[in-house]
Design a protein around this nucleic acid. Structure first.
Lengths: 176, 176
DNA sequence: GTTTGCATGTAAACGGTTACATGATTGG
DNA sequence: CCAATCATGTAACCGTTTACATGCAAAC
């Protein structure tokens, strides 16, 4: 999803500054399937404002840049819903880790082992944060999304734990 | 993974033209976690050649551009292994579908239903092609990667089938 | 005392995609 | 007859990341 649409979506849930949008995208409810950096959020918000899909009010602050609080307009809401209604781009998944595992036979065994360990730990951590998030009440859409991501991660973890030994055996035994 | 590294990796399995590399990346063994287009493969291959990580021999063909068959060099192999040994970039997953589900409450119920149906069908298709691929013998790394992707898709499908009704209920009942 | 949080923005660079150009052959 | 396969390449464009600029306050 492009940053434009991400911004609009987050603003349907309430007013926000660019800074707050960034924080929201980094939360577990979003970060597993969407991304946006400052460098793309701020220009997107300005363009959206020019186009009348968003309005801004500046809140003055001392010794700090003004907070620019953005509100989605009625036109913005319409545009957002319309963009969700037209054919969605396909999912895109990139995993350097899985790609690397394709070539386990070319890598030293202990390195493969470390990669697996790190990836498993990393996935466990994501899972446990998702499960914490599951406690507090959320909109149904968020519950659904978190649940889906949780199911996927849990399945991957299961697989990794069971198959780990087998792929490690494939690795080159010694070597540089 | 950048296209450079993808090209090198595929070439460790045998000589290939840019065209063949593209085809390989599009196969089930790769496409679920790596991508590359012609516009990035051809320049990458040329740069790799300049750098001495790859060598080329042109095979003349009538009425068609020469096949430029690329072979990875010893330096190329070393560079490839080295790139897999240094800290891997994180996985990146983008799912416009899951993002859209976050806002199911803003969309007409029948549209949400269609989106779910399409996504489920799409995932089923991926799964069945992976399971077919599972029949023919492959390198252990490929078996591992396919298995992992299969496990993830299967879990997602399960979740979708069970939760579908619940998220549909969340959708706005009527109209645009 | 250093890191983190708050808060905005720009410019350059990067990596990649899309569309185009070219064109024969084979299969449906 | 049209679509797909084979085969390479370029140029324009696009969205994004990275680094920079600025700077106080609070927490550790």
């Amino acid at each position: 999803m492009d940053v434009r649409t991400i911004c609009l979506g987050i603003l349907t849930r309430g007013d926000a500054t660019g800074y707050e949008i960034k924080k929201t995208v980094e939360e577990d409810g979003h970060r597993h399937f969407a991304e946006a950096s400052f460098g793309s959020i701020y220009p997107a918000l300005n363009r959206l404002t020019e186009e009348g899909l968003v309005s801004v009010r500046a809140e003055a602050q001392e010794k700090r840049p003004d907070r620019k609080v953005h509100t989605i307009t009625r036109a913005g809401r319409r545009a957002f819903v319309a963009s969700l209604m037209e054919p969605l781009p396909e999912d895109r998944h990139r995993s350097p880790f899985v790609f690397a595992m394709l070539f386990a036979d070319l890598l030293p065994k202990d390195h493969v082992s470390r990669m697996l360990g790190a990836y498993i730990a990393h996935t466990e951590e994501k899972l446990s944060r998702l499960q914490q998030a599951d406690a507090k009440p959320r909109r149904e859409g968020e519950r659904f999304a978190d649940g889906l991501v949780t199911a996927a991660y849990a399945a991957v973890l299961d697989y990794l734990r069971i198959q780990r030994a087998k792929i490690e055996t494939t690795a080159a035994q010694a070597a540089e």
